[in-house]
């Protein structure tokens, strides 16, 4: 979603959608998101009832199952505050995917309303709050993966703006940056051969750029590529943008 179509930010209170992946595997990413937002003076509310955005079933074609989860999400994130999510993929599900599967449903307007309030983290910081500088320091060469779900949004640019603003960060380009890493949700397990071949290509390009860390705004891509690299016996250090932002504030050295 383009921010011009979005509800403008008024207050400084947000609801955090932590994502099911952070809930299950990447607690530190969710924690970093909280710390980064609080550093910016934003009050973070965590609706306890949250589960998942509904994307797995949506992508798998089981829209009835997905709608059930989306309806739950709509109820859980009731209110007026912006909903901030450290994932371009879950954000896109809220403002695009969910709307698509609710096209013919009576409660489509509730889903659309949540979509207009939902922001991917970097987009929220840069375009929602207007923050383009970052304090602290982080000494590292960073390769940034623009996840596919941020295509057509301002998230990729926003993340790069923030990375460039951090003292000590050097962003390196790598080949075929526009290509998908091969994760694709259920695709990663129903097409394991193609999925991992795509991931391997991406890793080749990234390794050739010799970064200290490989950063993205989407842990799903990183779970796939990090897992692939580890299995190959050539692990690569993956981080979420929120972790880099937080560690910079603490002027922690790169791992």
């Amino acid at each position: 979603m383009l921010n011009s179509e979005r509800k403008p930010i008024t207050g400084k209170r947000v609801q955090l959608m932590a994502t099911c992946l952070c809930d299950a595997f990447y607690d530190d990413v969710a924690a970093a998101t909280v710390e980064v937002l609080e550093h910016l003076g934003v009050e973070v509310v965590f609706p306890e009832g949250q589960t998942c955005c509904g994307q797995p079933a949506f992508n798998g074609g089981d829209w009835a199952a997905s709608r059930k989860v989306v309806r739950h999400t709509v109820r859980t994130f009731a209110g007026e505050e912006p909903v901030v999510v450290p994932s371009g993929s879950c954000a896109a599900m809220m403002f695009h995917g969910a709307v698509l599967e609710f096209e013919k449903e009576r409660d489509v307007s509730d889903v659309e309303a949540l979509g207009r309030r939902t922001w991917e983290l970097a987009d929220f910081i840069v375009n929602g709050l207007g923050v383009k500088t970052w304090s602290g320091r982080y000494d590292a060469t960073v390769a940034f993966h623009r996840s596919c779900h941020s295509r057509g949004t301002q998230s990729g640019e926003a993340a790069l703006t923030l990375l460039a603003a951090i003292a000590g960060v050097k962003v390196v380009e790598f080949g075929e940056g526009e290509q998908c890493c091969g994760f694709g949700g259920t695709f990663s397990v129903s097409f394991p051969g193609i999925s991992t071949a795509m991931g391997a290509l991406k890793l080749d390009h990234v390794r050739a750029a010799r970064p200290d860390v490989f950063v993205s705004g989407d842990m799903s891509c990183m779970m796939h590529m990090g897992g692939l690299a580890a299995k190959e016996g050539k692990p690569i250090k993956t981080l979420h943008l929120a972790q880099v932002l937080r560690d910079a504030l603490k002027s922690k050295a790169a791992p």
């Binding site: 809930d23 990447y26 965590f46 397990v189 394991p192 991992t196 990090g226 897992g227 299995k231």
Partner: peptide, 23 residues
């Protein structure tokens, strides 16, 4: 699905609920 994943990819360590506890 898990098998298809794990054949070529490590799974990260399970940290279910840890974020909620931290918070």
């Amino acid at each position: 699905a898990l098998q298809a994943w794990a054949a070529k990819r490590e799974l990260p360590a399970w940290r279910g609920g840890e974020f909620r506890k931290w918070l």
